[in-house]
Write a protein that binds this DNA or RNA. Structure first.
Length: 781
DNA sequence: CAGTGAGCGAGCTTCCGCTTGACTT
């Protein structure tokens, strides 16, 4: 009898399951969705109750063809796609494409790839849940409508109109970044003076040690100074000691989002790097599936973790735990991310190792005992006034899970009192403490930090926006569209005051600190800010942080069979379409214009705004055709919102003529590709180490000479008449004719110097006849 | 490749969520 065919989504999963199921089943994968909405007319027939028109995307044709062939020669087809909305829809699409009846075709689900789980699933097949499929179709159609109606609005209203896009997920992601930036810009730091005293006492071994104690916070230097004055000549004694036990518990095992966060904090990985490495670990069988929102572990996994803990750390380190998802939008089709075999504490591959070990440690720790601490708080009395100082210390009694793993925190989650405490020497009530010194140091309040890729993912997950499979792509989309940039920011130096009481004298000191420095953080661009404002003004419901959560509730109703999906879409679409039409009709073009002042030379207005080629400053009016307006591009660290008049006027100092070199003018300017020197009708890029506003002719001359030489070296041969050049590029020698480049076949690259004109022409013809396959830069359907 | 910033209007872009390779002008 022919084998049954079982279809899953992931090919790596297919291999594992085939081994588990054995003889009776052949297991194939469909590589995710096999159909999608057509692009023409949005793929939706609005007038016909939003009837979707599905097509098989180009890159899925082969998969579908192969599945059809397998289905034909198999006994029964079983659908084992993931147990969530998307997985259910994939099963239904498979029915449609393979000609199966969804009412009778066997549909099975499991959350973990273990023999008992899969066997149990096979024993109890069900059929496709059409309500759940409808919920997915509603989700898909709503997203298509939002994306394909909103994006064209931007194309019409923005002066910069290349590839702009808007969508339910990405536009809110940009909004989060934009609002944080404005909070930071609007932030005014407030300073306080916190008292810190240093005392000495003997530790257990009788050695003198120094420990800190904290006092009151003062809002002004004067008050702090007054206080320090009152302490002159005072005695200090231990007033009261309290010892309290404390506990720390391990974090839940990894989901996609928490893995991305920890890999970012501990290893400095971008979310896409984390996902790439996790994919490799998954494909090589080292970890479970890496796109999951579940913190659940299979029973067999827990058993393995237990054994490993007992073996490696001892039984007192083991504590069984179950974790529950906080997030309501979790769909939990898979397990948490964990090693497939706990006895493998590491992997051979050096690239994957750090991520693997992170996953291993987190997994082992999640079934380990609490860490037990002892917190000591000592109150210290000051004889000369009524204030008290507090010294706190922490001693670890049992390390528990911390032996394996400690989770890092984001800056914005860190509570002040959560910082690592040191140990206190043994103290007794009434003990006199000699004061070493007492300080009041000025501390400034800080705004919330800018988002990292990973902390943005965390925020999106909290809002229920996006799914594990889309976090990384969303982050890259908003950067690719130019709404958001990942970059560093240099901090600025700031003075702070210190009042020091030492040897019964109060002195005033000052020091410097750097503030506001950021590394690899997400900054909104002017484009991102302007587009966000526009969308918020005209589509406030879609930009609402709760929009996704609200429609998810409705999708749930559809899934429960309580609401018809087309009615749900109707309710959304009718007012939305009105908003779109109103916006196209009435909204002004988006410019983000901001007045900066009046140019004292011409008496004309100076403004900052979005132009066709990005943010710029402008003197004068574009409507005045006789007296033309002047323009200058903003530097990429500047922003329309924050640039001031002086900075704007500085930008008009380019182009600058540096002087004569080899008989012609050398000038410097900033172009599309950054700063450059123009000389004798040729252009030479300026490296980062040069400032186009200050560079001198003397500095520019060697650049011209060097770059000219480098260009000559790049040239292997020139056929003047035919305008063909043989050049050396980063990938080896190549042919250039006009604007087009042609690859030289591998076997001829070594001897490229000897190529004759005829041979070169032959290569060009050959490449033209067999054009190399283009890498699809964007997803094609 | 190194300019432009207005308007006209070909023809094009665009969404989110499932999955992996193919691909280095």
């Amino acid at each position: 009898m022919a084998k049954n065919l079982l279809i899953v989504e992931s090919p790596a999963k297919a291999k594992t399951i085939e081994k588990i199921l054995g003889e009776d089943f052949e297991v194939k994968s469909c590589y995710g969705h096999i159909r999608d909405l057509a692009k023409e007319d949005m793929g939706i027939d609005i007038k016909n109750h939003y009837k979707p028109s599905y097509i098989i995307p180009e890159d899925k044709k082969k998969v579908v063809k192969d599945l059809k062939a397998f289905a034909k020669q198999s006994g029964e087809v079983w659908l084992a796609t993931d147990e969530d909305r998307e997985g259910e829809a994939i099963s239904w699409h498979l029915c449609e494409v393979l000609g199966l009846d969804p009412k009778t075709t066997k549909r099975i689900v499991f959350h973990e790839i273990t023999k008992p789980a899969i066997q149990a699933a096979v024993d109890k097949p069900r059929t496709v849940d059409m309500h759940l499929v409808d919920a997915q179709q509603a989700r898909r159609i709503l997203d298509r409508i939002v994306g394909f109606e909103l994006s064209p609005v931007l194309w019409r209203k923005m002066s910069m109109k290349n590839n702009l896009s808007a969508g339910r997920v990405q536009s809110v992601a940009v909004r989060i970044i934009a609002e944080r930036e404005r909070e930071i810009n609007a932030f005014t730091p407030v300073s306080t003076f916190r008292i810190e005293a240093l005392f000495t006492a003997k530790d257990i071994s009788g050695k003198n040690v120094t420990f800190p104690a904290e006092g009151k916070k003062f809002s002004s230097a004067e008050n702090a100074e007054e206080f320090l004055q009152t302490c002159i000549g005072a005695n200090y004694s231990v007033n009261d000691i309290q010892v309290k036990p404390a506990k720390k518990s391990p974090a839940a095992p990894f989901t996609t989002s928490t893995l991305q966060q920890e890999a970012s904090r501990k290893l400095g990985y971008s979310v896409s790097r984390t996902m790439l490495l996790a994919q490799k670990l998954y494909e090589s069988g080292n970890i479970t599936y890496m796109r999951t929102d579940s913190v659940n572990l299979s029973e067999t996994a827990k058993e393995e973790i237990k054994n490993q803990i007992n073996r490696q750390f001892g039984e007192n380190y083991y504590q069984p735990r179950n974790y529950k998802n906080k997030n309501e939008s979790a769909q939990e089709a898979h397990e948490a991310i964990r090693p497939t075999y706990m006895e493998n504490t590491t992997v051979d591959n050096a690239d994957w190792r750090r991520l693997y070990e992170l996953i291993w440690k987190r997994t082992i720790a999640c079934q380990m005992a609490d860490a037990e601490l002892e917190k000591t708080t000592a109150k210290i009395r000051i004889s000369s006034n009524n204030e008290e100082l507090t010294a706190t210390g922490e001693v670890m009694k049992f390390d528990g899970f911390l032996k394996a793993y400690r989770e890092d925190r984001d800056d914005d989650d860190m509570m002040e009192d959560e910082q690592q405490e040191g140990m206190l020497p043994p103290l007794v009530a009434g003990q006199q403490l000699p004061l070493k010194e007492m300080k009041a140091t000025e501390k400034f309040t800080r705004p919330l930090p800018r988002y990292t890729e990973a902390s943005l993912v965390k925020k999106l997950e909290e809002l229920g926006i996006g799914r594990p499979s889309t976090y990384a792509p969303t982050i890259s989309t908003i950067q690719k569209r130019g709404y958001v940039e990942k970059r560093d920011k240099e901090g600025i130096k700031r003075d702070f005051r210190i009042l020091l009481l030492k040897d019964d004298v109060v002195s005033k000191l000052s020091d410097q600190e750097t503030t506001g420095a950021e590394k690899s953080k997400l900054f909104p661009t002017d484009l991102g800010l302007v587009v966000t404002d526009f969308l918020k003004q005209y589509f406030d419901d879609i930009m609402d942080y709760n929009f996704t959560a609200r429609i998810e509730e409705e999708f749930d109703e559809v899934a429960a069979g309580k609401l018809k999906w087309s009615s749900m879409i109707d309710e959304f679409y009718i007012p939305f379409k009105k908003d779109v039409e109103n916006t196209i009709e009435n909204a002004e073009r988006i410019s983000g214009e901001r007045d900066l002042g009046i140019d004292p030379v011409s008496g004309k207005k100076v403004i900052a705004r979005m132009g066709r080629y990005g943010p710029m400053v402008q003197i004068g009016d574009t409507s005045n055709t006789e007296d033309k307006a002047r323009f200058a591009k903003l530097k990429n660290t500047q922003s329309i919102e924050t640039i001031n008049f002086d900075e704007a006027m500085e930008l008009f100092k380019l182009p600058r003529i540096l002087g004569q070199f080899e008989g012609s003018d050398a000038s410097v300017n900033i172009g599309r590709f950054g700063p450059y020197i123009a000389h004798d009708k040729k252009f030479y890029s300026l490296g980062k180490e040069f400032d186009p506003y200050t560079i001198s002719l003397e500095e520019a001359m060697p650049i011209i000479v060097e770059k000219r030489e480098a260009k000559e070296q790049r040239t292997i041969k020139v056929f003047e008449k035919e305008k063909i050049q043989l050049l050396r590029g980063p990938y080896g020698p190549y042919i250039k004719q006009g604007l087009r480049n042609y690859k030289i076949p591998k076997e001829k690259q070594e001897t490229a110097v000897d190529l004759s004109l005829e041979e070169v022409k032959a290569i060009i013809e050959d490449v033209k006849a067999n054009p190399p396959k283009k890498v699809p830069r964007k997803k094609k359907s």
